[in-house]
Design a protein around this nucleic acid. Sequence first.
DNA 1: TTGTGGTGT
Length: 616
Amino acid sequence: DVIELTRYTSDTQESDRNKPTPKRRLKPEEETEEANYQEWCTNLLGSYSGNTVQVLQNFDYNRINMNLLQHIVCFICNNMEDGAILVFVPGWEEIRKLHQMIQSTQMSRSGSIKVIPLHSLMPTANQKEVFDRPAPGVRKIVIATNIAETSITIDDVVYVVDAGKIKIKGFEPEMNLSCLQPLWVSKANAKQRRGRAGRVQSGHCFHLYTKFRYELLLDSHPPEMLRTRLEELCLHIKLLKLGSIVPFVSKAIQHPSMEAITHAINTLKELNALDMNENLLPLGQHLARMPVEPQTGKMILFGAMFCCLDPILTVAASLSFKDAFSIPLGKESLADEARCRLAQETKSDHVMLINTFKGWEQSLKRGNNRTYCWDHFLSENTLRMLRDMKKQFTELLFNTGFLKTKSPKDPHANLNSDNLGLIRAVLCAGLYPNVAQITHVPTMKSSLNRKGSIIMVTKDDQKVYAHPKSVNVRQSFFESRWLVFYHKLKTSKVYIHDSTMVSPYALLFFGGDINIVMEDQTELVTVDDWIKFKAASSTAQLVKDLRQQLDRLLASKIIRPGATSWDISDAEGALMTAIADLITLADDDYASGFSMGGSIGKKPNQLEMSQFGEQY
DNA sequence: TTGTGGTGT
């Protein structure tokens, strides 16, 4: 009933500003909903002013009405008793808009309000500013995502404004695609949001949707198990010896689709965690015991075996938890610049993360860590948590025998930690099969104008875009057109959030099955039948042989973990050195600007490969 | 041209 009161008052203020928006074409089920809605509005005519009903009739409920939001906030400020206001909106963009609208009002200029944006990626989320009582006569207005629904509780909130939308993550196994879409809140969300008001005194809640809409809301959103990847779940079922995966998962009250389960099982087979009969392989045993996704676990094991542990642990911790960047509203592009500085010219978000963490450690020694974090938009709190996670990972590796000490800084485990080429290859080992091929780069000019971004294809997707926060988004030259990535998410487009350029050698040694084929009278070596490189059959065969030896060696190390030998007088050391050298040289070759057609002047030196297609 | 929110002994 409070809803109805507010709607009445605010809509009268709203009506003259409400520009008519062109109605888009509706789907059949939307048309009947719309017809029902119009009828519902007409029935209100007895109880409400014609103006209110008219506004409601013209409302576009697919968009959040920012004007209405602002007007309600102003209405509370001007007409209602003291008390903080908490506004729920779906995401960053809405926080930004509303923040800007409110800051440009008269009451903001008079200093009678204090507006605080609240989002997990903004520094305000871990500052005490949000909890502070404002000075007398100043009204606190918090604009928040659903972070304020459960994780952050603000005691002095008296008024809650609920815009009615929430972002929910989903997963489509058929497309191998996660998506983040704004949806209507559920009745459960609505209740929870309402409950955030009036913790210390009686409160009020304003919902920006009609009773009509409320009746259509779901009681709650589908449980997480139905919307998420299931690799970890499947691995644990096997580790705990709970039998075959499909029958076990089917016992859940609301069980995930068959597609989602088989997709997870296939991914685990591809990683060599399960065999063809779903039996847990030795690698799977290790991965199941790690508190990270299987791919990240594999990256950690490879980091240990190839002795570039510390940097790889930085990446693993950042990917499985979150990166340490914390960006104030309005400083987005400054933060992008900081990230690009940290990445230098590596064309890698992951190497950027490594450099970021290294830089912080150095700043700690010099005692200027505060400045370092400030300059680069970093949360020192998060960096400390990442450091603790890295420690935890090394303890696990120590317990399973992959390490001789419990320190991420173990000298032997970091023999190759300055070898960027090898680090890229280990990233490739962990992130595979998340590979994207660049099909388009912005021109120098459009890149400087901050227009245009790289466009890629993956095995599953026609077209994917680099996320604007990626250091690779506006690069106009890549020595290799292959990128590996961790996070792919569909929002307005399909975005790749983080990527690292890798050489063909990294893909050949650490990617999927390699084959030698003829296509259009050209000899090719392929990885999983879709990543293709031109290569003479003799050299391709050499790579294939080396790859087989490497796979055998790695399999035996997984079964009997131990520190890797780099002594070229024994078999293991000789092979590891040869492969590491090959990958390193290939990477140096890039750095000095040679094309892939160039030969490599060292042993094993018969390799001559060129990329499929020309350089940009 | 952009980032709902949590977990793991």
